[in-house]
Design a binder for these strands. Structure first.
Length: 496
RNA sequence: UCCGACGUAGCUCAAUGGUAGAGCGGGUGGCUGUUAACCACUAGGUUGCAGGUUCGAGCCCUGCCGUCGGAGCCA
């Protein structure tokens, strides 16, 4: 029996005979020599099988990709191996010879990949994103723990609406209808009155019939709640949290982010203080000539980019027609395929722009900001932007009001830059509750326990919710939230 | 719920209304340093489903189903 090790630690065993256990990620053959690529969850490495090792050669010569196996052999340094080390195989034990693996090293469409999400996770890109997700979550927890917050697990089954009854998932609970939680907030407020500074982290569910790159029906949210906090304190907390998340992800995952194609410069610019605007200022800005001109400029740039990509594709296609060697054709076809996807995305974006411009130009005070409005505003800043003081009519009952002709609430949304939009929503909480509930057409008796919080020693308090998937989409520079969660639940997809 | 695009081999895509093809993946054979290897041969199709127009439909029309993107709503 030889030392078992992992691919990550291979370099520490140079010259020794070790055993690696993992999956067959790929194979190339050279007649009397095989180049296996092994994957074990810590990395990838090359294993060499020569024909003299007759048993090992026979065992792996036709082994399908993604079969599981353990290989034993000497670790040696070789510049030709990716990672710098390779293993010269002496023995192979096939743990399970698989069937033909559906996902090939060639491009696939998103529908096919999502249909095979359980297998797609083995590919490098999903695994990279999930590791960054792990870091993001760990950073959030560490951030709150270090500041004296107590973790409170709030229930997932709940008797009533947190925000909007229209978007609740009903569940049969021994003959009664209860709902999957949309937020832990109301329960968190109770715990806040007991422990001062608290946070919850868990899945939340919204039955929104939205099919956009920003939406999941099941997503994870981290929500802090702080006693004696006013809106400014809540904003300062959110700002510090985002700075910590960006800094930690940059520090630990620079290579991963580059592998995902993320431009690091915009992330490096994420430093406090973030710009702050009121809703009314945003409404004016949306309707302004400057914004219209900005969108037109962006569209002109996009059209130029689109033409450049189309020209580039044409050049590559010509080159492809004149190319003999197939490996070069292969590479050209991949580039053409990637360009085609980029062109399609950009064309779609350009199609939507006039509509978004129209929506912004005709924006009226009182509406909540739409996704396209957030995108427009967040493209105007290099750092995340706070938008505060939304119309009370557009927001939930539990936000504290500022009285006036057109009442606003002490709330804030944080918009991620580069067009990503809202990643945080929060507020200072209401203290005169019953009237607020009635104003929203809700029944106070449904919220009796929550009303108790204002009957027994209420204090000013506030908090916010951070959407993990949207934040991760922004950090990784992805086009769609569905890649940031292991098994996305969207309108129209429940499988696998 | 509404608007738009798409649906061809296991996968990614071609195919003026006129004989359904390529590459990858699979199979067989060859090659001792490959890097999403390469070379030769090979199998693989009810063109999403149901109607319609036409001498003739993958292509045109209608309906349905599915996927993708957007609006409303939202983290």
């Amino acid at each position: 029996m030889h030392t078992s090790t992992t691919i990550r630690e291979l370099g520490e065993h140079e010259g020794q005979v070790v055993t690696l256990r993992g999956w067959l990620a790929g194979r190339r053959s050279g007649g009397k020599i095989l180049f296996l690529t092994l994957r074990d969850g810590t990395g990838l490495c090359q294993a060499i099988v020569e024909a003299q090792q007759a048993d090992a050669f026979a065992a792996t010569e036709k082994l399908p990709r993604e079969s599981s196996l353990s290989v034993t052999g000497a670790v040696r340094r070789d510049a030709r191996a990716a990672g710098g080390f390779e293993i010269a195989v002496q023995q192979v034990a096939v743990l399970h010879a698989g069937g033909e693996f559906p996902i090939t090293p060639k491009p696939h469409g998103i529908d096919f990949l999502m249909e095979h999400r359980h297998l797609w996770l083995r590919s490098r890109r999903p695994a990279t994103i999930l590791r960054i997700r792990h870091t993001l979550i760990e950073t959030c927890r560490t951030f709150f723990n270090a500041r004296g917050f107590t973790l409170i697990d709030t229930p997932i089954l709940s008797p009533g609406a947190g925000e909007d009854a229209q978007t609740l998932f009903p569940v049969d609970y021994f003959g009664e209808t209860v709902y999957l939680t949309q937020t832990g907030q109301l329960y968190l407020e109770s715990a806040c009155m007991a422990l001062g500074k608290v946070y919850c982290f868990g899945p939340t569910f919204r039955a929104e019939k939205s099919k956009t790159r920003r939406h999941l029906t099941e997503f994870w949210m981290i929500e802090p709640e702080v006693a004696f906090a006013e809106l400014g304190d809540v904003m300062a907390l959110a700002e510090a949290l985002i700075c910590a998340c960006v800094a930690t992800v940059l520090a630990r995952h620079e290579a991963d982010l580059i592998a995902l194609g993320r431009d690091l410069e915009p992330l490096r610019r994420v430093q406090a203080p973030f710009p702050r605007m009121t809703y009314s200022e945003v409404a004016e800005r949306l309707r302004s000539d400057a914004t219209r001109q900005q969108i037109e400029t962006e569209m002109a740039q996009e059209r130029r980019q689109l033409q450049a990509w189309i020209d580039q594709r044409g050049t590559l296609e010509l080159k492809l027609a004149g190319t003999q060697r197939t490996w070069e054709q292969d590479k050209l076809q991949l580039e053409i395929h990637a360009l085609r996807t980029e062109v399609e995305d950009l064309e779609r974006d350009l199609e939507n722009r006039p509509r978004h411009m129209e929506l912004a130009a005709s924006f009226t005070w009182g509406k909540d900001l739409g996704g396209s409005d957030e995108t427009i505003i967040s493209r105007q800043f290099e750092r995340p932007v706070f938008v505060t003081h939304y119309p009370a009519e557009a927001k939930a009952f539990y936000m504290k009001r500022v009285p006036g002709d057109r009442p606003v609430v002490l709330n804030m949304d944080l918009l991620a830059p580069e067009g990503y939009g809202e990643i945080i929503g929060g507020s200072q909480r209401v203290d005169v509750l019953e009237a607020a509930i009635r104003d929203k057409g809700l029944k106070p008796e449904d919220y009796d326990w929550y009303l108790d919080l204002r009957r027994y020693g209420s204090v000013p308090h506030g908090g916010f919710g951070l959407g993990i998937e949207r934040t991760l989409t922004w950090l990784c520079g992805l086009k769609h939230v569905r890649e940031t969660i292991p098994f996305p639940r969207t309108l129209g997809r429940m499988y696998p």
